[in-house]
């Protein structure tokens, strides 16, 4: 019996129509569906950047693994850094469903042809930074990522669901670390405040440029890749973070921060977008070091992958024989 060919559109317009209808009905696009080239390119770019951020994100905190103040903190930090690696893997896996190749994406990262979140170009100066990254940086990541669990591209949305479950651990361990330090000595409290002073503004920048200066946003929203605008998410984040800062007993470094009775929102001061552009374009405090380390990880460990490949090749013949 030959397969029926009815309602099997072959021309681009009909395929586009089917794609649009899927998006309009808020259903998910799956890897084997036809999709516009722009949609696919946007997703590869976004997912790759996201994956790179998770992988590079292991470095600032990983720097403290051998200097953790206790075995308990070390075990927690190790689990957290391992999660970041896992998140990178989920996302590279999602990018590969779109035809991208993970090793290629890594090369593009190392050659600085693809970007990662600018937040990871700041150094971690004290152990309080570990806590503040968990609270503020992972908190901002959660704000960004929760809506992505409903992203229109199935594999991306599913990866985000796994990631969000784990981010909650990241944020809570950070906040708990800070609560512990805040109940410590004046020096420890000062350390927390100093870390908050350094990370607050970069955290706000994590939501990207303001809406009127965000060239890709409108199309991404129309495609259901993005669900909320940059400014919307940034405001939500500030509203969530201010009471947390108050509970902790730290001051957010923004003299213009005030509660707007009328709207119920915390209004914040102007963000230094020049700094953002400087860091994104590669001139942040740690850009060169992050890429150098990632390159070293690839090159120095190449012998391991080669050995594993050689071992697999050597035993492939035997495995086939035993299966017969």
């Amino acid at each position: 019996m030959s397969a029926p060919t009815l309602d099997r559109p072959t021309d681009e317009a009909a395929l586009q129509q089917q794609f649009d209808a899927t998006i309009a009905a808020d259903r998910r696009i799956e890897p084997r569906d036809w999709m516009p080239e722009g949609y696919r390119k946007t997703l590869v770019r976004q997912i790759a950047q996201h994956a790179h951020s998770e992988i590079i994100g292991m470095q600032p905190e990983g720097d403290w693994l051998l200097a953790a103040p206790s075995l308990r903190r070390k075990a927690i930090l190790l689990a957290k850094v391992q999660d970041e690696a896992g998140h990178g893997m989920y996302l590279y896996s999602a990018a590969e469903t779109l035809g991208a190749d993970r090793a290629d994406l890594t090369d593009k990262l190392i050659e600085s042809k693809q970007k990662y979140s600018s937040i990871f170009n700041y150094p971690t100066l004290t152990y309080a930074d570990v806590g503040v990254i968990g609270w503020l940086v992972d908190g901002a990541a959660i704000c960004n990522q929760v809506p992505l669990c409903r992203s229109s591209y199935g594999p991306y949305a599913r990866a985000m669901i796994r990631i969000c479950k784990e981010e909650s651990f990241h944020q809570r361990q950070g906040y708990e670390l800070l609560m512990t330090m805040m109940s410590g000595t004046p020096a420890q409290r000062a350390m927390v405040q100093d870390a908050v002073d350094r990370w607050w503004w970069p955290s706000l920048m994590m939501f990207g440029p303001p809406d009127d200066d965000s060239p890709n946003s409108a199309q991404s929203m129309a495609w259901g890749i993005k669900r909320h605008s940059n400014d919307e998410l940034r405001q939500r984040y500030v509203d969530m973070s201010v009471p947390q800062a108050q509970f902790l007993g730290v001051t957010l470094p923004d003299p213009d921060l005030h509660f707007d009775e009328e709207t119920g929102h915390w209004r914040f001061g102007a963000i230094d977008w020049d700094e953002f552009k400087r860091v994104v374009s590669g001139n942040g405090p740690a850009n060169a070091e992050r890429i150098r380390r990632r390159r070293a990880a690839r090159d120095d460990n190449a012998w391991v992958t080669e050995a594993a490949t050689a071992y697999a090749a050597k035993h492939a013949g035997a495995a086939v024989g035993s299966a017969a």
């Binding site: 890897p31 590869v44 035809g99 190749d101």
Partner: peptide
């Protein structure tokens, strides 16, 4: 993984 686009935009050049 089903359909893998092979157009020129796919980063497979390295």
């Amino acid at each position: 993984h089903g359909a893998i686009p092979t157009g020129p935009e796919v980063p497979t050049t390295t």
